[in-house]
């Protein structure tokens, strides 16, 4: 069947997809992509509730757009791009700065102040504290670059597409971010 657009922005490519409602297709996409997206936003923004908001906003924007037919990887990359723009808007408007607890985490050692789930073991909390503290001392753009490169495994071109930076500058910015992160992370807790 020829590709046709539906009102919710999803393109129909075959009979199976035609039979699915927009909500079912969103559910499928959401289950495949929302957790990595949330983790990315949580580590860049520093707050679970802010990450929840941006995740929801990202999918709403995605549905509003008349997106062309894309494979799963391209769709995921597109979602990260929308989310990165939303994060940037948040920091630009000052919301991100005031709500960012990463910087706060970097200065304190008392985990009772932190928004960490209770089910984590002591060593897990310590390891996560280290990561969050290190991230807190980095700029939002550095956090984005490190996450996209080392957790999502994106290439420089993909990172450039997601962040709006030039492909050539990614290499240098990533190099600086990596050097800074390596100094900030305590090796004995990161099992290297």
């Amino acid at each position: 069947m020829e590709a046709a657009r539906t009102i919710d922005g999803f393109a129909e490519t075959d009979e199976k997809q035609c039979a699915q409602t927009g909500e079912e297709r969103l559910q499928e996409l959401y289950e495949a992509t929302s957790r990595p997206l949330w983790a990315y936003l949580f580590h860049v923004l520093g707050r679970a509730d802010a990450a929840d908001d941006v995740v929801q906003e990202t999918y709403c924007r995605f549905l509003e757009r008349k997106t062309p037919v894309m494979d799963r990887a391209a769709t995921k990359s597109y979602l990260f791009r929308i989310a990165t723009n939303l994060v940037r808007d948040r920091f630009r408007s000052g919301t991100g700065k005031s709500e960012n607890r990463l910087a706060q985490m970097a200065r304190i050692d008392d985990s009772s102040h932190l928004e960490l789930p209770a089910r984590e073991s002591g060593s897990d909390v310590e390891a996560r504290l280290d990561v969050m503290a290190a991230m807190g001392q980095m700029k939002p753009r550095e956090r984005e670059l490190l996450w996209l490169a080392y957790v999502e495994g994106m290439s420089h071109a993909e990172i450039a597409a997601a962040t709006g930076l030039g492909t050539m500058s990614i290499r240098l910015l990533l190099f600086r971010a990596r050097r800074k992160a390596a100094q900030l992370l305590r090796p004995e807790r990161t099992n290297v």
């Binding site: 983790a39 679970a48 995740v55 089910r119 897990d124 290190a134 957790v151 990161t190």
Partner: peptide, 19 residues
């Protein structure tokens, strides 16, 4: 070192947060 630390942190946050 960084990839391991971040990936472990990502896995923990995946497990513990209700989306």
């Amino acid at each position: 070192q960084i990839a391991r630390a971040l990936q472990q942190s990502a896995q923990r946050s995946h497990l513990l947060h209700r989306m």
